[in-house]
Amino acid sequence: MSALPDNPANALHGWRLRVYTIIFEADTRAGRWFDQVLIACILLSVAVVMADSVPALGAHYHRAFQVAEWIFTVLFTLEYLARLATVQRPLRYATSFFGIVDLLALLPTYLALLLPGAHALIDVRVLRLLRIFRVFKLSAYVVEYRSLAHALRASRRKIVVFISGVLMIVLVMGTVMYVVEGPENGFTSIPTAVYWAITTMTTVGFGDITPRTELGRFFSSAMMLLGWGTLAVPTGIVTAEMAAQRFSSPTTLPTPTTRTCHECLTEGHLPEALHCHHCGAHLPPWQHEPGGQGHP
């Protein structure tokens, strides 16, 4: 993609650039401290909600839990507004994955004013811990995550074919079990029988529906054995793709940083990168501490 034209009027500078570097990047000391404090607050806020759901604790400390919950919500609200105020394109951030997660982390507390009990949904804040990969310099894990994502994307057609085959098997076996067992043994309809076939083939086996006849048990045993075999298929597909990718890629990969593009908010650029690898926009100078992550 061609580089986006630079607009000096919209370029970040002054306090917006400083706050942006602290909030969105973690290669400076202030940025690392900010994200570490943020992660601690997320963990504490989730712990408060979980503790409040325990009857013994909620009965004695409900008021304290409510106060703590509102304190965390106000802090996260200020953080969310600061993110909107410092990015070049607030709407793009608000509709991004992390932007939506950040907003969902705020809404339950406010919704609880109208819908009691909605505050329990605050546990969605745990998704914000995905930032831990860049805060604690776990760049190697990010590279492995991208490798796994690439393997899944490369093998998606094979997985779709496999799932289609499994769906046909459970549909046929569910229909057979509906005919063999019948409504009197719990197989009240073909969809119910297909549900049984899925739980049996995936080796989950809830036990709420079980075959009663000898022929039904025979088919059930065959489904269980078939389930053991099918578990290895998707694993082998993805593993083969990962092995092929590992042999075709260099043994050592450059370490990405938390440097983000001001246009599209994509991070993971190399220290020497001049343009965004996603949208092609010009990258600002890399803000970092000497000897920090990605520093040669």
Score class of each variant (00 low, 15 high):
residue 135 V to T: 14
residue 201 M to D: 10
residue 83 R to K: 07
residue 278 H to N: 12
residue 224 M to D: 08
residue 148 L to D: 05
residue 201 M to K: 06
residue 145 Y to T: 08
residue 163 I to F: 12
residue 273 A to L: 04
residue 177 M to G: 04
residue 216 G to M: 03
residue 198 I to F: 08
residue 167 L to D: 05
residue 216 G to D: 03
residue 292 G to A: 14
residue 145 Y to R: 12
residue 282 H to I: 15
residue 118 A to D: 09
residue 167 L to H: 06
residue 146 R to K: 12
residue 230 T to L: 04
residue 88 Q to F: 07
residue 40 A to Y: 05
residue 294 G to T: 14
residue 130 L to F: 11
residue 66 Q to L: 12
residue 170 V to H: 04
residue 24 F to I: 07
residue 104 L to E: 13
residue 242 M to C: 05
residue 132 I to C: 09
residue 128 R to I: 09
residue 236 G to L: 09
residue 270 L to A: 13
residue 74 V to A: 11
residue 237 I to Y: 15
residue 65 F to N: 01
residue 250 P to M: 06
residue 118 A to S: 13
residue 203 T to V: 11
residue 160 V to Y: 09
residue 42 I to A: 02
residue 30 A to N: 13
residue 117 G to I: 03
residue 126 V to R: 05
residue 193 A to K: 15
residue 31 G to K: 05
residue 73 T to S: 09
residue 139 S to G: 07
residue 243 A to L: 14
residue 75 L to W: 05
residue 101 V to H: 09
residue 66 Q to R: 13
residue 270 L to G: 06
residue 290 P to E: 15
residue 118 A to T: 10
residue 154 A to P: 00
residue 22 I to H: 02
residue 138 L to R: 10
residue 11 A to E: 11
residue 145 Y to S: 10
residue 61 Y to V: 02
residue 271 P to F: 09
residue 234 P to N: 04
residue 295 H to N: 07
residue 169 I to H: 04
residue 156 R to E: 08
residue 14 G to A: 00
residue 38 L to E: 00
residue 125 R to N: 08
residue 57 L to S: 12
residue 136 F to G: 00
residue 3 A to K: 09
residue 186 G to E: 04
residue 44 L to F: 14
residue 150 H to R: 14
residue 244 A to H: 15
residue 114 L to P: 04
residue 186 G to A: 03
residue 235 T to I: 11
residue 200 T to P: 00
residue 56 A to R: 11
residue 284 P to L: 13
residue 79 E to T: 13
residue 78 L to D: 00
residue 188 T to W: 10
residue 276 C to F: 01
residue 129 L to E: 05
residue 238 V to P: 09
residue 202 T to K: 02
residue 223 M to S: 12
residue 257 T to F: 01
residue 36 Q to S: 07
residue 157 R to Q: 12
residue 151 A to D: 06
residue 107 L to S: 14
residue 131 R to T: 09
residue 183 P to T: 07
residue 116 P to K: 02
residue 8 P to W: 08
residue 14 G to N: 04
residue 15 W to A: 00
residue 143 V to P: 03
residue 286 W to C: 06
residue 211 P to A: 05
residue 48 V to L: 04
residue 173 M to I: 11
residue 135 V to C: 11
residue 265 L to R: 10
residue 119 H to M: 01
residue 143 V to C: 11
residue 116 P to M: 02
residue 183 P to M: 03
residue 180 V to L: 08
residue 283 L to K: 01
residue 185 N to W: 06
residue 213 T to E: 06
residue 212 R to N: 11
residue 107 L to N: 15
residue 100 I to H: 07
residue 296 P to G: 10
residue 125 R to C: 02
residue 232 A to L: 14
residue 225 L to H: 03
residue 64 A to D: 14
residue 231 L to K: 03
residue 191 P to L: 07
residue 237 I to L: 14
residue 187 F to G: 00
residue 190 I to H: 11
residue 280 G to I: 06
residue 266 T to G: 00
residue 176 V to A: 11
residue 92 R to K: 11
residue 222 A to F: 05
residue 106 L to D: 09
